[in-house]
Design a binder for these strands. Structure first.
Lengths: 196, 196
DNA sequence: GTTGTTTTGTACCTATAAGTACAGTATGCC
DNA sequence: GGCATACTGTACTTATAGGTACAAAACAAC
């Protein structure tokens, strides 16, 4: 164990609480009092452990995307691309109803638009959204190579469409859509995707 | 003409400039200095003419939705529902490239998530998004009644799907997607919609 | 127990947010 | 011209934002 007075809170738990605040209120909408209260610590502890608000956000974001990536990669490893996409869209629809997490997607509502001070956060989120799209695209390219998707399809375009639907579902979830509502959306989106 | 010193700026023009700031930075991200500078007026003039920041936002929002509604109603009056939806989605794709307006959609990025002080604005935006969805749903119900859509389709679900795609396109546009990118998304979405 | 180290809590700092008081100025009306 | 009225510009107020100084407290090592 390290010398000095021991930390009285668990860093990961505190980060999870911060994540939920950012998720619900966005980067700019989450105030320091909001964060410290949710984390159960006071301001200097937050700064000592996480740097500052932006670093805290990035660490919470890392946690969020790590989790999302894990689920995504597991789903995309499904051998049939059609099944993978079904699992992905229905999974998002069902997951959005989880009462333990805020509605919507942090990558979308964290800072879709913002003031000048948060531009770098906005860019970071756009990059991470692009990474999600790229992962889907790579999976579709694999499907094309395997003949699991008609060769007429463009992996890039289809990946963008799927990402678009996912992001639209995030907006609707944040607006209060139910899991059923979103499952119906997923079902319609899947009609566009070649069954082959 | 009314008595007293005449206003030195045009209210509608100033409102348009304010609209663009809100559109680009969101309700919370737009600061008073951002607004007054873009509008070319000073603070007391803003308060005298528009009330306060929130009222200014609502008036800008009215202007925005009025315009959007006009275009939407025109497009939805298209006799064939399939043609209407094509025009709507491709129109949004093309319109998002307009260099005179900020990227994305004010209804989505105005305040998707925000601090406590802006909750009422967030709710207002959600309501207006719901109005857009309702307009599409009514048009689809009409199509169903006319046999212009397979009777197996649910107007509510399909309207939600189309709204989802539109909102997803708004997110992608805000992230820098090109008109071509978005046209490809629109094309994929239209594949889901029965040709009948 | 003393020392060195790290965390905690109170109380602060500076910057900026939204909003306004008030004097000055440009008009219409008589 | 003189008066009422409404807008403009400067300079302010209050509240809150993010961030920090510093003393008290809790530990490890010796």
């Amino acid at each position: 164990m390290t010398a000095g007075r021991p930390r009285e809170f668990n860093t990961d738990e505190a980060l999870d609480h911060a994540l939920k605040v950012f998720w619900a209120k966005g980067y700019e909408g989450a105030s320091l009092p909001d964060l410290t209260e949710a984390m159960g610590i006071n301001r200097p502890s937050l700064y000592a452990a996480f740097g500052n608000k932006e670093e805290l956000f990035r660490k919470a974001l890392d946690r969020y995307t790590e989790e999302a990536k894990k689920k995504r990669d597991e789903i995309l490893s499904e051998p049939k691309v059609r099944v993978a996409l079904e699992k992905m869209l229905y999974g998002i629809a069902d997951g959005s109803a989880c009462p333990k997490s805020p509605r919507g997607c942090l990558l979308v509502q964290g800072a879709l638009s913002c003031g000048d001070a948060a531009q770098s956060v906005k860019m970071e989120l756009a990059q991470r959204r692009a990474q999600g799209e790229a992962a889907i695209r790579r999976r579709l390219e694999k499907a094309l190579a395997e003949g699991d998707l008609p060769s007429s399809a463009s992996a890039a375009d289809l990946a963008r469409f799927i990402t678009c639907v996912i992001q639209g579902m995030a907006v609707q979830s944040a607006s209060g859509a139910s899991a059923e509502d979103l499952r119906a959306v997923a079902a319609w989106a899947l009609k566009a995707i070649p069954a082959k």
